[in-house]
Each structure stands twice: as structure tokens, then as C-alpha cells.
Amino acid sequence: MQMRKETKLAISTAKKAGLMLKKHFGRYYVVKHKNKHDILLDVDVQADRLIRKELSKSGLPMITEESQHKSKAGSFWVVDPLDGSINFGNRIKDFAVSIALVEEGLITTGVIFIPEADELYHAEQERGAFMNNLKMHVSKKTRLSEAILSMTLSSVKHRREKELEIMRCIGERVINIRSNGSSAVSCSMLARGAFDCYLTVEPHFWDYAAGSLLIREAGGLVTDFEGREYCEDSRSLVIGNSSLHKQLRGMIKGLQVF
């Protein structure tokens, strides 16, 4: 099946940005501290500029973590130029470039590149999800007690408090909890079945746009806590196969996180 030109552009752009980040791994400076749990690096800015230049060839607008401008109508790109800045700044290799295309409210292309692992993930709407061109599928586990729950702790204080409360309540019901510091890396691992399920609150669209399509195309469910399909305005996020997703939603109904 012929790959869309937009997907080809997203892939080539993610690779260029990722290779630039890899080249600068271990060599960077902090531009500013966004808050006590998050930083902006010079390579964040460089990757953002590179991606803007490449994606401008499509003629479509962009929203990124660094710009945070919203484009609700028509078609637009959603980009996180460096997801996992804290990891990058501490020489931890779990960081990624994330690019998604939204058309009339639907995420139609998702690309994530993890430079240090040389893993390229891509998905197109109703065409499946792939890692390095090999088709992926989410975990087939059906028991929450055997599942690895992934959560990415927010850098924002009130969000982090809610996520820690979820961890306290659900932690004993799963085999383990993983927090690797990058939403894009976590979504990639969920799409290929390395992690089994995922929860978070108040997700940023640029963190999950590409990853949510990867997971859906790999057979997973991506909704808010109420079961509504994930979108830009979602205030919560629960991910898993149909069985684990149902169990997680049942457990979080009684939690007062909003």
C-alpha cells in the first residue's frame, strides 16, 4: 500500500531532527527552567526550528510544545520536537521526536522516532502501525494483575499529585509500574506490547497525538476516563487492549482526581 506523502514527510523530518539530537546528546545547555520539574534545552529550540522548516514544505500550520498555539480548523501538524528533555539533559536515552497530522479533527498520521534505539514508529489511519516497517500489535494480556502499567509523571504540580494518587490506588493491582520520562517512548512501547496499559490526567496534545494513533492502529483503545475517544480536549487518558482498558476504567471510577 502506497504511503501518503504527508507520512513520508513526517518520517524524513523526524529522522533529521532525531539524528541532530543524537549528535548533540551529552552536549547541550539549559535555556530556561519551565518549572522545578521541567527544562527547556538549546536542542529543544534547534529541533523545533528544523522541524518547522521541513514541515513548512507541506503548507500546513503547526502546533508544538514550544509554540503551544492551537489550530482547531482544517489540517495541521502537532509536534513535540524533543519529548523527554529531562532524560536528554541527564544523559538518559529515552527521548523521542513526535509528529502527528490532524485533518478535520482526526489524527491521520503519527510518527515517533527514538534516535538512540534507532526505532522508527509510524501509523496511518486504518492502515496499521509499524516499527521499522514491521507490523505491531498491543499486548494481549487480559489480567490486570499480570500487566505493566506505564505512567509518565507530569512536570506540573497539581497534575503530578493526581497521578501519584492514581499510582497509590492502582499500584497493588498491577505487576509493576513504569515511568520512563517520555510520553512518546511510552506510547511506542504500548503499541508494540512491551507495556500493557497506561493512565494519565490532563494530557498535552503534542505529547500523545502521534502515539495515540500508533496504539489505535495496533489494536488498542485510547480514551478518556469516561470512555470518550481521545482528542485534543481530553482531560484524562486510559490506554490498553479491550480487556485491560475495561478493567482500568472500572477501577478509576471511584477515584477523585478531578
Rank of each mutant, 00 (worst) to 15 (best):
F195N: 05
E172T: 12
E217P: 10
E103P: 05
S242I: 04
K16C: 07
R249W: 01
H33R: 11
H69T: 13
V257W: 06
I51F: 13
T7M: 04
M189I: 09
R27Y: 10
L221H: 14
I148H: 15
M189H: 12
G89R: 00
E54N: 08
M1G: 12
E116V: 09
L248H: 07
E65C: 09
L190M: 06
G227R: 06
I63T: 10
M251Y: 01
Q46V: 04
A129G: 07
A47R: 01
A73E: 15
I239C: 04
H137R: 08
E126Q: 03
I63D: 00
G220Q: 07
G240V: 01
Y29F: 12
P115T: 15
H24D: 14
M189D: 10
H24V: 09
D118M: 15
Y28I: 03
G59R: 08
L153R: 02
M151H: 13
L244H: 15
Y29E: 13
M20C: 00
L221T: 14
R216M: 13
S182F: 02
R249I: 01
G193F: 00
E6Q: 03
L213V: 12
D80S: 08
F25T: 14
P81K: 12
G193M: 01
M1S: 13
Y121D: 11
Y29P: 02
K93T: 01
G227S: 06
F130P: 00
I239H: 07
Y198T: 04
L255A: 10
T108K: 02
V138C: 02
L244T: 15
L41C: 05
G128S: 04
I166G: 03
T152A: 14
L9W: 02
S182T: 00
D80K: 09
R91P: 00
C187S: 12
I39N: 08
K93L: 00
E126D: 06
Y198W: 09
E124R: 06
V185I: 11
N90I: 00
V31K: 10
S71L: 07
V30C: 14
V43D: 04
C231S: 08
L134G: 02
G18E: 04
L214V: 05
Q46A: 09
N133S: 06
S155W: 06
A191R: 03
G250S: 08
L144D: 02
K5H: 13
A117M: 13
M167S: 11
K72V: 01
V31S: 11
G171V: 11
A147F: 00
Y198F: 11
T142E: 14
Y28H: 09
S242F: 04
H122M: 12
A184L: 08
R249D: 01
L221N: 15
L50G: 04
N241T: 01
R235W: 12
C197M: 04
Q2F: 04
G250T: 07
V31E: 10
L164Y: 05
N180V: 02
I252H: 03
N90C: 00
